[in-house]
Structures are given as structure tokens and as C-alpha cells.
Simulated scan of single mutants.
Amino acid sequence: MDKEFKALRIREENGEYKREIVSRKIEDLPEGEVLIRVRYSSLNYKDALSVSGNKGVTRNYPHTPGIDAAGVVEESSSDKFKVGDEVIVTSYDLGMNTDGGFSDYIRVPANWVVALPKELSFRDAMIYGTAGFTAALSVYKLLASGQTPEMGPVVVTGALGGVGSIAISILSSLGFEVTAATFDATGDEEVLNELGASNRISKDITDDQSGRPLLRPLWAGAIDVIGGNTLHTLLKACKPMGSVTCCGNVGSGDLPMTVYPFILNGISLIGIDSQNCPMELRQKVWDKLAAEWNVYKHKEQVIESSLEDLNEYIDLMLQKKSKGRVIVKL
């Protein structure tokens, strides 16, 4: 197939990373059993890092970012999928070192592909995307650890971002009292209330600088996207036998702390790896997002962008000024 299509390409030029919309051919795509015509993608922090030349995300350029894609199978050499199947691809190496979803077409291994649940449209699937899947996986693991609404409030950091806002919606629908942790304690009250947050705290409360190994318990559990001292604070101010999930390092990848929250209060720290999550669990979580956990109350405020207009939203994300979800219509 020699069909031409458009894609966002990032190229390295004298140490700088340039973005441009280019024309490509199917034969330019990497090897894989499944060729997918992309209908929607979404913008994630890893995409912004890839665009800016972060070699921890993408090693070689030129490259097409986009760690999420939803679309229709156009060719398949796998017996798992046939032409016309509606599918989702998120995580694994898509958009990192394998050309990703900011493109009309992707070609990927069959074992990266998830059947799109019949209750989800392409658009809604990408409103969730990796961020929504990560939020849902965090809630799933929190529940599996024994966390219940009766234990007390759960704090969600990055509450106005993709993972945080969706996690709040799911938790509140399950009867949890949710505390939204944001950069400051002012503004966006209406949005947080719509998402289901019961109250809100500023980053000062989740970024303790006292140096104490334990704090007075303030919450029963947490979902954290920040890492570093924020994660440390969440652990040492958690009520005994609570659980804290960790899925990000926007603040820092370091975690300098004592073992006291674990050995004195029985706190569980749960790592969330949405990139390499086993396929059986991945499909189960997507099915929940399509059904009883399809409760995100912020869909009407999702920003829909074309490839041509995506640059401004990438810049906002790199400046840590983005809010909610940006999806890309191909």
C-alpha cells in the first residue's frame, strides 16, 4: 500500500527539536501485524516530553509522538483482529520509540491492541486515553488493596489534570469522600465540584517541609501523580492501614524518606505501571471505563484539536499550565 497520509513529525536540528506536519507513506511505518486508521488520539505529558527531545522517552528522531490512538483496523495479519475492527492502542512503546498516534495511520504489534468496548466511541475512548486508563488502574489497585469509603477521605493530586480529574470522578461515584489537591487553593471550585470533589487543599499541605518522618494523619489514602516530596507527604500523613498509589513524577523522581510510614502505620505504596499492564487486566479496566466507571463529568470541557493546532496545547503542557484533556481528531 503506497497511500499517503499526514503526521506530526519531530526532527532534531542542531540540538533543537522542530515540529512539522509532513506527508508520509504506509511503507514508512514500522513493522507490525495490525495497520490502524487513526480516528482520535490524545495529548499526554509523555508526548510533550517526546516533542521536546527528552531522550528518556524517545531516543531517535525524526519521530511521531502520540502514546494513544483509537481507530479502525485497515490491515491485519493476526487472527486476533480483522479489517473493520474498532480498537484502542495505548502505552507499550507507541509514541515513544514507535511512531505514534499523531498520525492518520499507525502500525503496531497485535499484542498492543485492545478491542474498543462497544459502549465507547472513539472520541470518548481518547478522552480517557492513557490518562483515564491510568486513573482507572489506580482506583482498581486502590480497591484491591482493601481501601473503602468508610476508612475516610482519599486525596488526589494533580486534581485538574487528566489523571487526577478522572480519578476524582470514579472515586466519587464509588462513594468515596475525595479531597482535591491543586497548585493553589483558589479558583476552579465549580469544576472540582462537578467532578465530585468534597473539598480542596493547596500544594502546601501535600508538600510538607518540616522534615518529620511522620505527620498527624489527615487522609485515609491517596492517588498521586507528582512524586518526590509530595508522595513522601502523602505517605507520612496517611491514616494507618491506608494505601497510596504512585503513577507519575511530574514533581520529582526522587523519594528520600524513612520506612516509618510502612513499619509503624502499615501504609501500602502501590506502583501503577499503565505502560506494561498485562493485557487481561488492561481489557478489564477498559471494560470498566466503558460501563460502570464511565462517569467522567468534564467531557463537555474537553478541548478537541487538529494536528495543525496541537502546538499551543503542547506548549501549555510543557509549561505545566494545561488543564483537563486535549484530544486530537485525525
Rank of each mutant, 00 (worst) to 15 (best):
K6G: 09
R9L: 14
R19K: 15
E20H: 11
L29Q: 01
P30S: 07
G32L: 02
E33K: 03
S41H: 09
S50D: 08
S50Q: 08
G56S: 14
Y61T: 00
P62I: 04
T64K: 11
A70I: 00
V83M: 11
S91I: 00
Y105R: 04
R107A: 00
P109Y: 02
N111S: 13
A115P: 09
L116A: 04
K118F: 03
R123G: 10
G129V: 11
T130L: 07
G132C: 07
G132P: 05
K141M: 13
L143H: 08
S145D: 13
P149V: 00
M151C: 03
L160A: 15
G162M: 04
V163M: 06
A167F: 01
S169V: 07
L174R: 03
F176Y: 08
A181Y: 02
T182C: 14
D184R: 13
D188V: 03
E189M: 06
E190W: 07
N193D: 12
L195N: 06
A197S: 06
D204T: 11
I205K: 12
T206D: 11
T206Y: 07
I226P: 02
G227K: 03
T230V: 15
L235D: 04
C238Q: 01
V244Q: 02
N249P: 06
V250R: 06
P256D: 12
I263P: 02
N265A: 04
G266Q: 08
S268F: 05
L269C: 01
I272C: 11
L281P: 01
K288F: 06
E300N: 11
I303F: 08
E304V: 15
S305G: 10
L310S: 10
N311G: 15
N311K: 15
E312H: 12
I314H: 11
D315S: 13
M317I: 12
G324K: 08
V328Y: 06
